Simulated assay, not measured.
Amino acid sequence: MNHNTPLSPLLLHPPAEVRRRVLTTAQLRTHGVSAAEANEHCRAGGPWQQILPGVYLLHPGPPTSEERLHAVLTYAARGTFPQTAPGVPAQPTARKPHRPAYPDVMITGLAALTLHGFSGAPVLPALEKIDVLVPRLRRLRSTGCARIIRTAAPPVPEAVTGLPVAPVPRALADAVAHLTDAGTVRRLLTEAVRGGHCEPAAVVRELTSAKLLTRPHVVDAVDALVAEGRAIAEDRLYRMVREYGLPDPVWNVDLRLPGGPHLGGLDAYWPDQAVAVELDTRAPRQDEDALWSEYARKRELLERLGITVVHITPRKLRDALEQQATVVRTALMAAADRDPAAYVVVLPR
Rank of each mutant, 00 (worst) to 15 (best):
V277W: 03
R215C: 08
G79E: 08
L305V: 06
L110C: 07
R304M: 11
A173I: 02
E278T: 09
V18E: 14
L255S: 02
A153N: 10
E40G: 13
T108C: 14
A126C: 03
G183H: 02
T151F: 04
V309E: 03
V193W: 04
R186Y: 03
P135D: 06
R349S: 09
Q273F: 04
T84R: 15
P103E: 00
L189K: 01
I149N: 13
F118N: 05
D319I: 00
A152S: 12
D220C: 11
A224F: 07
F118T: 03
A146C: 15
T326M: 13
A16D: 09
V327G: 06
S209P: 06
A182G: 13
T184A: 11
L52D: 07
Y238P: 10
A112Y: 02
A35F: 08
A231K: 09
A201G: 10
Q91L: 15
K316W: 11
A76W: 10
R230F: 04
Y295D: 15
D280E: 15
T330D: 11
Y244P: 05
A166T: 01
V328K: 07
A101S: 11
V253W: 08
D174W: 05
E67D: 03
P216E: 08
P63D: 02
P167L: 04
E40I: 13
A126K: 10
V203M: 01
V105S: 09
R215D: 04
A101I: 07
A121K: 05
E158T: 03
P122Y: 01
S209M: 14
G229C: 04
E300Q: 15
A342F: 09
G183W: 08
L212M: 09
F118Y: 05
E322P: 12
R150P: 02
V222R: 03
T114A: 15
V165A: 07
L12P: 06
C145G: 13
H3P: 12
N2I: 08
A166L: 06
V344F: 05
M106C: 09
A224C: 13
V203H: 06
D220M: 08
D337M: 12
V344Y: 00
D174N: 08
D181F: 09
Q273W: 03
R299F: 11
R236V: 02
H311M: 12
A227S: 03
A101W: 11
R194C: 12
V218A: 02
I148T: 03
P348R: 02
T190W: 14
V277L: 10
L317W: 07
R138T: 05
T114D: 12
V204T: 09
I149V: 14
R19G: 12
A268V: 00
E206N: 00
V88R: 15
Q83N: 14
A296K: 14
H3A: 12
P53N: 05
R236Q: 03
D223Q: 14
V22T: 04
A336C: 02
R282S: 15
I149T: 03
V310F: 08
L115E: 04
V275Q: 05
Y56K: 10
A16C: 11
L115Q: 01
A71R: 01
T281D: 15
G264M: 05
R139S: 11
A71P: 12
V22W: 00
P89K: 08
A290V: 11
R139K: 12
G117H: 05
A16H: 06
G120M: 08
P200S: 02
P9N: 06
D174A: 08
D181N: 14
P155G: 06
A325S: 01
V88F: 15
Y102W: 09
P14V: 02
E234R: 13
